[in-house]
Amino acid sequence: MPERVVLLHGLWMRGFAMGLLQHRLAEADFMVERFDYLSVGESGPKALIERLRQRLMPSEEAEVVHIVGHSLGGLLALRACENDAGLAPGRIVCMGSPLLGSAAARGFAQLGGEALLGPYHGLLEQGFESWTGPRELGVIAGRMRLGLGAVVGQLQGEHDGSVAIAETLLPGLTAHCVVEASHTGLIMSADAARQAIQFLRHGQFLGEEPG
């Protein structure tokens, strides 16, 4: 039976932005669907998380349901899967998600842009302390420094232009890798797609020794 993958886009995007990644995952024989939402216009995270959880339920078409989230989408994926009761088994891949909180988002809020971060600004700014959910979590970070976040967020160390690699290193994750891509470029990167496919299938990234 094929395995299903739900794709979550990031802030200021819509589902169509994940089209190339969807195509690459489909070529790897996953059933892929995009979860579209208004990152700024939604009324709040509670209803969105419940709607997302409904998409992660087992079905006759697929008993395994993975989730791949870019940026804010990765944070929402973790929030939805903190309690896995009733959900189909599967893995999570986060691409460029500031899981420990975003310095760029905090800088943007201080400049008066909090309203443009939408109802998820708190999640973006603060992130999580650790991952204790039941699903295996793989994180793909970029290190091509192209993006506005580097200007407003005073990012430290290597980063993808919006998110520092250090911000993606959430305690409790299963595996972590870095590719040559900018923040937005992660969802178009062939290397990132290959790494995502590897983790969804095997729970580790290419180049890692089996655990």
Rank of each mutant, 00 (worst) to 15 (best):
M31A: 15
L21Q: 02
L72P: 01
R4D: 07
V139P: 00
A141T: 01
L52T: 11
G149L: 05
R14A: 12
R145E: 15
V40S: 05
L56K: 07
P45W: 14
R194F: 02
F35M: 07
S162F: 01
P45H: 14
A17V: 14
E136C: 12
L173G: 08
V93S: 04
H23E: 15
A62Y: 05
H66N: 10
G118Y: 10
G112W: 05
I197R: 02
R143D: 13
E158Y: 13
R201T: 14
L155M: 09
R145A: 12
C81D: 00
A109H: 06
G157S: 10
H9T: 03
H176R: 07
H183L: 07
P171D: 01
D36P: 10
L76R: 01
V163R: 00
H121K: 12
A47Y: 12
I140C: 06
S189P: 00
Q22N: 11
L99A: 02
G207R: 01
G138K: 04
L48M: 10
L117P: 08
V6F: 07
L173F: 08
Q126G: 11
I187D: 08
A17R: 14
G138W: 02
L137W: 01
H176P: 05
A103L: 09
L100Q: 10
G101V: 08
G161K: 05
D29E: 11
V179H: 06
L137F: 03
H23W: 11
Q156K: 15
R24L: 04
L206M: 15
A88L: 02
G113D: 10
L25D: 05
T132E: 11
Q110E: 15
L169W: 09
A115R: 11
G207M: 03
G149K: 06
L186V: 06
L52F: 07
A109Q: 03
S189C: 07
G211Y: 15
L52P: 04
A166R: 01
A164P: 00
A192E: 02
I187F: 09
Y120N: 15
Q22V: 08
G118T: 09
I187K: 05
I197F: 00
Q126P: 04
V152K: 09
I67T: 15
H66R: 10
Q156Y: 14
E60A: 13
H70Y: 04
F205G: 05
T168P: 00
S97N: 05
G211P: 15
A150Q: 14
L116F: 15
C177M: 00
S182C: 07
V5S: 01
S71Q: 00
D160G: 01
G118A: 08
R51W: 08
R55Y: 06
R34M: 07
L25T: 08
R143I: 07
G118S: 09
L124E: 09
V68I: 15
S43L: 13
P45I: 12
I67W: 12
L186F: 06
S162W: 01
G185T: 00
L117T: 07
Q54E: 15
I67M: 14
G185D: 05
L169T: 07
Y120H: 14
R14G: 11
V64M: 12
A193N: 06
A77H: 04
G112V: 06
P98C: 10
E129D: 11
E3Q: 13
P210D: 12
T168S: 06
H202I: 11
E60R: 12
F205Q: 01
P210L: 13
R55D: 06
V139K: 00
V65Y: 00
